[in-house]
């Protein structure tokens, strides 16, 4: 099992190196940093001086190495547009995105798994049929449309919830949170539903189909034949087996929530890193774009690793096989 984990970590590092290369290449190939940083009245001397200052005269590999070693320390350079360190800007923006993603993720997981189990157990009931039909809408409508519909309904027509921004936030020094004020909580509702709806329906449909499959298995029949309570059969026996195939998809979907936050943050003008990234693209603010790319990939790779480790925790067969059998 240790060998397996080491192999997975090595793979993850390789993936990150490749993403790092892409991010780094943006500096060289998307626009010219010298162009971006010097104004119209530049002299060749200015250009040469800056070129040496930025290390652009050095070989590619050396530059890449320097980029990586500073990035690992959390230093992504200075934003072209704001003239402040990228790490500071991202640190300011991250809480907004993480709080939004956390609420959406928890919504998607709990409601998704809950409804999935319900519709599997009551598979012919009218409630299940309604839920399944409605869920088709969740899968097929694009995120921005859902956001706009929700805004139209709850902000414009009913005037119950705000249509943009985070509301009032409380600054804890290292973190700003919207969880502690009423307007902050209210502001979270529409964006988190918008962001989590697709994942929620996806998780629900997946849990349902996996659970129906598990409920057909012999060991479920045997559990019934042993006179176990329906609750024990459904949750202790069926749900646990359902989770094995569900874990991967769910893990990746939670990663996708943060990545897709770009759209939701744009629709709701949510001051998170997604909105930051969209603005950075408009201004070709390469350091911010590179940092965002790196962060998202670190997160995806991290989630992948955690998913793999969860497998070991849930499924004893893997623990044995990967340990080298016996």
């Amino acid at each position: 099992m240790l060998a397996y984990i080491i192999r997975r970590v090595a793979q993850s590092i390789l993936v990150l190196l490749v993403v790092g290369l892409v991010a780094f290449s943006m500096f060289r190939f998307v626009g010219d940093p010298i162009d971006n940083m010097l104004g119209q009245e530049r002299t060749q001397a200015d250009i040469d001086r800056l070129r040496i200052e930025l290390g652009l005269d050095q070989p590619f590999v050396v530059q890449y190495y320097k980029f990586l070693s500073t990035a690992v320390q959390g230093n992504f350079g200075v934003s072209y547009r704001q003239g402040r360190p990228v790490s500071t800007i991202i640190a300011e923006r991250a809480p907004a995105t993480l709080e939004l993603a956390a609420v959406s993720g928890i919504l998607a997981l709990t409601i998704g798994i809950g409804l999935g189990v319900f519709t599997a157990i009551r598979r012919d009931g009218w409630a299940s049929n309604i839920i399944m039909s409605v869920s088709l809408i969740g899968v097929s409508l694009p995120t921005f449309l859902i956001g706009i519909l929700l805004i139209y309904l709850f902000s414009v027509e009913l005037d119950m919830l705000p249509s943009f921004g985070r509301g009032e936030v409380v600054d804890l020094g290292w973190w700003t949170t919207g969880f502690l004020t009423e307007s902050g909580l209210k502001a979270l509702i529409l964006p988190s539903i918008t962001l989590g709806l697709y994942q929620m329906t996806l998780i629900m449909r997946l849990v349902r189909s996996e659970m129906l499959e598990v409920l057909r298995q012999d060991y479920i029949r045997f559990a019934r034949a042993r006179g176990l309570k329906e609750r024990a059969v459904n949750f202790r026996h069926a749900l646990k087996n359902t989770m094995v195939p569900v874990i991967t998809v769910t893990g990746l979907q939670l990663g996708a929530i943060i990545a897709f936050a770009i759209i939701t943050e744009t629709v709701f003008q949510w001051p998170g890193v997604g909105l930051l990234f969209i603005n950075a693209i408009q201004f070709v603010d390469i350091p911010v774009m590179a940092a965002y790319l790196m962060l998202i990939s670190v997160m995806f790779v991290g989630i992948n690793l955690i998913v793999d480790l969860l497998y070991f925790w849930v499924d004893p067969r893997l623990r044995a096989d990967r340990a080298g059998g016996h």
Binding site: A225, H237, N241, V244, P316
Partner: peptide, 15 residues
């Protein structure tokens, strides 16, 4: 009590 045909699938693999 009941005993089924296939012992490989009668037991819950995760318990």
């Amino acid at each position: 009590g009941m005993v089924f045909q296939d012992p490989l699938t009668s037991l819950n693999p995760l318990l």
